[in-house]
Design a protein around this nucleic acid. Sequence first.
RNA 1: CGGGCUGUGGCGCAGUUUGGUUAGCGCGCUGCGUUCGGGACGCAGAGGUCGCCGGUUCAAAUCCGGCCAGCCCGACCA
Length: 469
Amino acid sequence: MPDDKGALTSRAEDFPRWYQEVVAQAEMAENGPVRGTMVIRPWGFGIWELLQGELDRRIKEAGAENAYFPLFIPEPFLALEASHVEGFSPELWVVTHGGGNRLEEPVVVRPTSETVVNHYFAKWIQSHRDLPMLVNQWSNVVRWEMRTRLFLRTSEFLWQEGHTAHAGESEATEYAIRILRDVYLDTMERVMCIPTLIGHKTDRERFAGAVRTWTCEGMMGDAKALQLGTSHELGQNFAKAFGITFADEAGEQRHVFQTSWGASTRLIGGLIMVHGDDFGLRLPPALAPSQVVVMVVRADESTGPAASAIADDLRRAGLRVTLDERTGTSFGRRAIDWERKGVPVRVELGPRDLAEDSAIVVTRHDRSKASTRLGGLVDVVSGALEATTEHLHAEALAFRDARLRWVSTLEEALEAGSDGFAVVPFSAVGDAGEDVLAEAGITVRCLQRDDGTLAKEGDDLVAVVGKAY
RNA sequence: CGGGCUGUGGCGCAGUUUGGUUAGCGCGCUGCGUUCGGGACGCAGAGGUCGCCGGUUCAAAUCCGGCCAGCCCGACCA
């Protein structure tokens, strides 16, 4: 919000007003006791739990199993893979004391777990029969960040990180892409209702230690890009550093090919920034801790029991329902609180409605209200939830496509990429072009074929460029 | 690390230029009452070492010196 403080004004201009409002209103998080850490309040955490469930199911369908590895990593582990340690060193939090004494060897708090996981993979993998090894971990990680921003870049964040080992290179590539598509892309498109572009990163944007980084990129409500999830092909870099070898069918000792992939609480930020409006958050039904709130307009001997019965009916239909009978708080106050939290559908029941054997159904995504017969209420609410999912995705897609321009030169990309996405032949950009774009705060978000599909390389590669968070 | 700014009840701020009774306002909070169909209202009340240390003065939130913390802009990043 523009004000007397110059610094704040310039920031607010490119920082949507609703972002901060929505985050605050949705009671999701605030900066915590240590710089850049976050506190997620129950409503926001409920969203995360649902998101976790959706991701976890898909991860298991892709064959990976959950496991857990230590929070503390011996410092020498990090040093084993040269580019990995180089990439992460500036971001490490290091513990120097334990039990009141200085530790002989400092330990690192994990910024990501490739090193510990691979330390164990080296022990666990002996034969081609042990492959592929597909492991996932839900955990927190910490990274020292120069500049933190709620949900998008916090010093501590929650995520899942998958780590796999395969016998062959093509197998690893296929698995990395399978995760990108079947886990990440599918969750983002169908669950989060976020139109998502996929592709791979340029060399400079690649994960430290990877040979190729595949990525999902979304456009936020201010036309800036957000990296929503990444899947890395690690080649044999870590296998060689950690000595992960197996005996193949012929009895030869060979190094494995690996992948690692992750998606974090950043997704909550993306969700807010794609769907939030001036009235608060708008949640896709699949991620709404409460999908329906049944509100009693005023205290009354008949509306209370009737609302309770409606809530039960909706629950029996498999919906997550909250019954709001707090008539001590004014109706408007309560209605706006739920609206801000993004509850997709509200059912409002007052004496007037009850007298007509009806209720008001309010849909959050378009704020429309309709009087509905109680007899058909469950169907109407279910239909409204389905419509919400479609509407949120369609609206976000229309927004993004209106700000995505196909261009053919670097100069055009520079212009179009400053307030949206530009798609430009990668041959027109190149490494030198990335420097030029960087001057304007624009980066290559991903490389893909001109039909939007994935390709490792080729003449038809296009670069999606834009400003990023 | 460079550049800018701010520290005053839980939150947001005014007051500082020009020192002067008991430090004020909005929101929130507690109690009572009236309300309740779209962010209610009235009355009563709780809550402050004015970031910290020192100095000047009859007198310091206000002036001087030092320190600390936080925010914003640049370099980093899921």
